[in-house]
Nucleic acid binder design. Structure first.
Length: 857
RNA sequence: GCCGGGAUGGCGAAAUCGGUAGACGCGAGGGACUUAAAAUCCCUUGGGGGCAACCCCAUCCGGGUUCGAUUCCCGGUCCCGGCACCA
């Protein structure tokens, strides 16, 4: 249990009279009654869509991390509202998926019963946090009115040829008994349960996200997103520029001849091409082709059967069998080089020499062409492999200093360099920056970059190569052999084949299945519900059956932001007028753990819907900011450590306003912070002092000029900090102002306090609303506008200037703002403490008005 | 290994354009109020030296640029996140 170090200030004895429990209840009720947080979606003149990543409604309830994210977004949204925008801040629940299903299995309650319960609890918690949410637009991905359109999106992709079925090696989690997307496999283990992932072959539905790789990459150059998130997406898409190079396989006759005669293959290729087998490889280092001493194919490569010689057939078959038995994980984790010679040779198109063809599991079928040219001299993996099997290692790239022409003065050295320009490499030489080509015929001396271009151009003339771009990104596997998700809206008919469910028949309702446990068959639990999956073909009317897989949860969340403004619309996924007014999303705040999954899929789905003519924009989130993560007393929070912060307890003891403000105060929002129980007292004290200041404020006389100056400086600071999400410094500035406001126990004037209440309101909305009312506000503070700062009022008359002698601080002077250098220098020299260091002739004077004076002697 | 981000008092952190390092908050110490405690308010609080005015040292480590570097450049250490037999 979480120990909260300080007890609740008892409202009866609390000197300030501030009782958050009373204030927060009062305003939450009022806001609901008055519809303060409801957005008139049709009317907003300056719409602002403040989106937060919707939560997965776990049974544990709202996590402090959720609240950290939501509060940051809420402050941003409230600030925009105070700036005159019509703000829409919706929320919903990402309630489908394995998470929910596994938990339901664990506690033995049907998810259809469990999920609404969890949602109710979440809703209660969210309301207690005082978010400016328009609850009329709440949505849940499990609602048939929602997933009807998730299914519709699947069909849109299908119509456009972007959804296809393929039998594929998939990641199979033996614990969750389902396939996983590559993205859900972390270091060979299931992202959710940590079990070791195995390899299975199943018919799967895929989305052709790879068709969009280039667009997804290119748009990253202009969308206003956290740089860290964009970097993660770039890595994930993994564009690599290289070339596809064709290696011709030698036939047996040629092989015999090659053993005795030096072949000039370049000349004869054209005529032989027709009958010979080609192996196409992908490489990012075409400049090293003269050093390609062997080829390697993935064991699964379709050409292996055709290539293998009779001598090697048995060994090759055994190796292929061993590889296919191996799960995808061990194959990638075990880096010891293994492989088998096929007995076949290919011609290196650059050297014209025959090189052996091997198969090895370090070459993956799913990347590039499933075949590589091995350049052991300049690639670590190829080097290791060549060492193990005694294959030749040739140097074709050398550091600049090794070039013979650089050593003509040193006869002995030149001699050794010339005789053997590629001494045995102790390790692969992979530097591409300070290097040039050697042993590469007419290309010697070129830099790596020049060599790449020149060699591809040269090979291309003979049809041996072409520049090509490859992506690491794979197509998105959306099939899940599970129960708790939207059924994929497809029907299989023996006569018509794959038939999409007609739009008028959507949604394909998820039947209520009592026994929803997945089993080892790799078939969804829905396959057990015969009454459900047996249907008539919508096309020919004959017996047919439904697809029994459900779709990936990431499809549910890939479009929810499009639905929010139209959550009440029945006959279409989104209303055109709403789209026009509210989308793309003005500001999206969320965690970077979704940098490549949710955020990439959302962009993809948006692009597809754009191409299909449903959306005018192709990027869903104009602005995205990743928030940081909270740790607890220097350690990561985890259930096992029992150090998780439960928001409810803190809200109860300190109030939601204090909790919110504290969360925002503990560090830079985009970096996160360290939650320390003791420190929350600081922000609570600040709110107590705010309360007293407002309640006791004097109305007679006038505000103090000095205090007003600080006030306007504070308004400026907060106004600048909030849009930058620099919440911690904004709060610090308000605390600083509070110190001035209440210095020496003075009683502040209303005019000094009222604007502060407005500044505080995005952070601590309840207390602000209460004090606003007590100060005479008639309508909600959130409709009161944002205080303007007056630069002339904020200006200081006197400034302190640091005085340095030779760059060392020797004192400070107080001068009028706008004082010139001569005058400032005179003032500084009048100070004996400074003067005594400024001896001798003055060489130079640096003057930064208002800041610093540096005298160099 | 590659790509990001980071390292500042006892602690969380500021310093936004190269210009007084440590704002703000926590904790700690002292004081006021109180019979007492809590709460509240006030003062002190990077390290070292000095009776003192003051002086020296200090932003992960080592160099450099500059009148001046937490900030820019080069080299290194450690921590966090992402990717990883991706050719």
């Amino acid at each position: 249990m979480t120990e909260v170090t300080q007890s609740t200030p008892d409202s009866a004895t609390e000197p300030s009279g501030y009782d958050p429990a009373v204030v927060e209840k009062k305003w939450q009720t009022r806001w609901e009654e008055r519809g303060t947080n409801d957005t008139d979606l049709r009317d907003g003149a300056r719409p602002f869509y403040a989106l937060m990543m919707f939560p997965y409604p776990s049974a544990e309830g709202l996590h402090v991390g959720n609240l950290f994210a939501f509060t940051g977004n809420d402050i941003y949204g409230r600030f925009q509202r105070l700036q005159g925008h019509t703000v829409f801040e919706p929320i919903g629940f990402d309630a489908f998926g394995i998470h929910s299903e596994n938990y339901a299995l664990k506690v033995g309650i049907h998810p259809a019963e469990l999920i609404p319960r969890n949602i109710a609890n979440f809703r209660r918690q969210l309301k207690s946090a005082g978010l400016m949410v328009d609850w009329r637009h709440e949505l849940s991905t499990t609602d048939p009115e929602y997933y009807k359109w998730t299914q519709w999106i699947f069909l849109e992709l299908y119509k456009r040829g972007l959804a296809y079925r393929r039998r594929a090696a998939v990641n199979w989690c033996p614990n969750d008994k389902t396939v996983l997307a590559n993205e859900q496999v972390i270091a060979g283990a299931c992202e959710r349960c940590g079990a070791k992932v195995e390899q299975r072959f199943l018919e799967q539905w895929f989305f052709r996200i790879t068709d969009y790789a280039e667009r997804l990459l290119a748009d990253l150059d202009w969308i206003d997103w956290s740089e860290t998130t964009k970097t993660a997406q770039r890595n994930w898409i993994g564009r690599s520029d290289g070339a596809e190079i064709v290696f011709r396989v030698m036939d047996l006759l040629e092989m015999g001849a090659a053993a005795t005669v030096g072949l000039n293959v370049m000349a004869t290729t054209a005529e032989l091409n027709a009958m010979a087998t080609d192996i196409r490889v992908f490489t990012t280092r075409p400049d090293t082709i003269f050093g390609a001493t062997y080829l390697v194919l993935a064991p699964e490569h379709p050409l292996v059967d055709a290539l293998v010689t009779d001598d090697q057939r048995e060994e090759v078959a055994a190796y292929r069998a061993a590889t296919s038995k191996q799960d995808l994980v061990t194959r990638k984790v075990n880096r010891e080089k293994t492989g088998v010679f096929t007995g076949a040779y290919a011609i290196n198109p650059a050297t014209g020499k025959p090189i052996p063809i091997w198969i090895a599991d370090y070459v993956l079928m799913e990347y590039g062409t499933g075949a590589i040219m091995a350049v052991p001299g300049h690639d670590e993996r190829d080097f290791e492999f060549a060492k193990v099997f005694g294959l030749p290692i040739v140097r074709v790239v050398a550091p600049r200093g090794v070039h013979p022409s650089r050593h003509t003065a040193d006869a002995a050295h030149v001699d050794s360099q010339n005789r053997d320009e590629h001494p045995p490499l102790e390790e692969p030489y992979v530097d591409t920056e300070h290097a040039h080509l050697v042993n590469s015929a007419q290309f010697n001396g070129l830099t790596v970059e020049e060599g790449k271009h020149a060699i591809v151009t040269w090979l291309a003339r003979h049809g041996h190569a072409k520049p090509i771009v490859n992506y690491r990104l794979h197509d998105w596997c959306v099939s899940r052999q599970r129960y708790w998700g939207p059924p994929i809206p497809v029907i299989y008919c023996d006569r018509c084949g794959v038939v999409p469910v007609p739009e008028k028949d959507l949604p394909v309702l998820l039947p209520n299945v009592e026994d929803f446990k997945p089993d080892d068959t790799g078939v969804s639990p829905l396959a057990r519900v015969e009454s459900w999956y047996r249907v008539k073909c919508p096309s020919c009317g004959h017996d047919a059956r439904r697809e029994t897989d459900v779709s990936d949860t990431f499809l549910d969340s890939a479009w929810y932001f499009l639905r929010y403004p139209s959550s009440d619309v029945e006959n279409k996924p989104f209303d055109e007028a709403m789209l026009k007014k509210w989308l793309p999303v003005s500001s999206y705040i969320g965690g970077n753990e979704h940098a490549v999954l949710h955020l990439l899929y959302s962009r993809f789905v948006t692009m597809v819907l754009h191409d299909a003519g449903h959306l005018e924009f192709e990027e869903p989130f104009t602005k995205f900011r990743a928030h940081g993560h909270i740790i607890r007393e220097g350690a990561k929070m985890s259930k096992t450590k029992g150090n998780v912060v439960i928001p409810d307890q803190y809200i109860e003891r300190w109030g939601a306003d204090s909790f919110r403000t504290y969360l925002m105060f503990l560090g830079p929002y985009e970096e996160g912070g360290d939650f320390r129980d003791q420190s929350i007292a600081g922000v609570r004290r600040f709110l107590d002092r705010l309360w007293v200041s407002a309640v006791d404020a004097r109305r007679d006389g006038a505000a103090d000029d000095g205090v007003l100056r600080k006030l306007h400086q504070t308004i400026k600071k907060v106004t600048e900090d909030v849009p930058r999400l620099s919440y911690n410094t904004a709060i610090a500035a308000m605390m600083e102002y509070m110190n001035v406001l209440r210095a020496k126990e003075r009683t502040p004037h209303v005019d000094e306090v009222r604007p502060l209440v407005q500044l505080v309101s995005p952070f601590a909305p309840h207390i602000a609303e209460e004090l606003w009312e007590r100060l005479g506000g008639r309508m909600s503070i959130f409709d009161s506008g944002w205080p303007a700062y007056d630069a002339s009022l904020a200006a200081e008359e006197l400034v302190t200037i640091a005085v340095q002698v030779n760059g060392k601080l020797r004192g400070t002077i107080r001068v009028a703002t706008g004082t010139g250098q001569e005058e400032a220098l005179a003032a500084a020299m009048a100070d004996p403490g400074i003067k005594k260091f400024a001896t001798g002739t003055t060489k130079k004077v640096i003057y930064v008005p208002g800041r610093l004076l540096n005298v160099v002697v």
